[in-house]
Every structure is written in structure tokens, then in C-alpha cells.
Simulated assay, not measured.
Amino acid sequence: SDIYENGISTSSLSKVFSLAGLRLGWIKANEYVIHQINVRRDYSMISTGPLVDKLGWIALKHKDELILRAKKIISSNKSIVCEWLKENPRFECVLPSGGTVCFLKYYFDLKSETFAKLLLAEKGVFFVPGSCFDKEYYFRLGLAQDSKLFKSGLDELSNFVDEHLIS
């Protein structure tokens, strides 16, 4: 937004700081865009509330520690995915070099929404179906989850596939 007069920059505590529950972010743009945003925001909320503001302030005060923690978790989960993929050749993904989300491609004749619903009902593992992103036969895979839980979810996905999709 500093380079181009119509540029818009956004950020939040969600991805970088792994604090999605706070729903606290910011936007930088030209005065007209900010005015339009504020007019619409005033109809849905005036502010995030003092507790969220305080927690956001604490997070930003400790940003270096939070970012380091997030990088360690993401790095660990990337390693877990790489090892898991070696044992699960009917899946593949390109891991992001600087992000927290990728798409896990699978090679089964089962639509992603149906697959995700069955997996959730039977194994308690939640994936956003690729169809939500116009990417059928994919799941959205977030890499910022607790590594033990992350590995457990991938293992349950393998179990589901072994039990239902491989004959």
C-alpha cells in the first residue's frame, strides 16, 4: 500500500502468530478504502472489545517468541507430512516455503466433501474439502496444529483409507 496508491495491505494475528481465535487484524489502504471499510464495519461491530485488544497487545509484545514457536511447529509438521507421504503414495502435496497451508491431493474416486464428511464422522478428523476452493480431490491442510495432534490426524486418515478405500 506504500508503493501503489490503490494498494491494500492486510494482516492479522491469525496465521503468523497462530492466534486465529482472537480475530484481530488490520488493514492499510488509501483514505477512501479505509472510509468504506469503516462504514461497513460500524454496522457489524464497533471494536473487537477490550479483552481481545489486551490479548493482541500482549501477543505483539511477545511477537518474536510467538513467531519462533510457530516456525518450530510448522517445521515439525512439514517433516511429519514428508514422512507420512512416503508411507501413503496415494497422496501428495507441495509444501509451502513460507506459508502455513497447502493442499493435500489424493488419488481416490471419492469427492472431497463426501470424503471429508465420512472421515470426520468415523475418525473425528476434520479437513476442509478441496471443493470449497474449486480443487476437487484435495483437502486443505493447515500446518500450524500441535504436532502430536497433527500426526495423529494423518495416521487416522491412513487408517480410514486402509479400512475403506484400498481393496
Rank of each mutant, 00 (worst) to 15 (best):
Ser1Val: 04
Asp2Phe: 10
Tyr4Val: 04
Asn6Met: 08
Ser9Pro: 01
Ser9Phe: 03
Thr10Lys: 04
Ser12Leu: 08
Leu13Arg: 06
Leu19Tyr: 00
Gly21Thr: 03
Ile27Gln: 07
Ile27Glu: 01
Lys28Leu: 05
Ala29His: 03
Ala29Glu: 10
Asn30Thr: 06
Glu31Val: 09
Glu31Tyr: 08
Tyr32Gln: 14
Gln36Ser: 11
Ile37Val: 15
Asn38Leu: 15
Val39Arg: 08
Asp42Glu: 10
Gly56Asn: 07
Ala59Pro: 01
Leu60Thr: 07
Lys61His: 12
Lys63Leu: 03
Ile67Gly: 00
Leu68Arg: 15
Arg69Ala: 14
Ile74His: 01
Ser75Val: 00
Ser75Thr: 12
Ser76Val: 05
Lys78Ser: 07
Asn88Ala: 07
Pro89Tyr: 07
Phe91Asn: 05
Leu95Lys: 03
Gly99Cys: 05
Thr100Tyr: 14
Cys102Ala: 11
Tyr106Cys: 06
Tyr107Ile: 02
Leu110Gln: 07
Glu113His: 09
Lys117Val: 04
Leu119Ile: 05
Phe127Pro: 01
Arg140Asp: 00
Ala144Tyr: 14
Phe150Ile: 07
Lys151Pro: 00
Ser152Pro: 00
Gly153Trp: 04
Asp155Pro: 01
Asp155Thr: 12
Ser158His: 09
Val161Pro: 01
Asp162Lys: 15
Asp162Ile: 04
Leu165Asp: 06
Ile166Cys: 07
Ser167Ile: 09
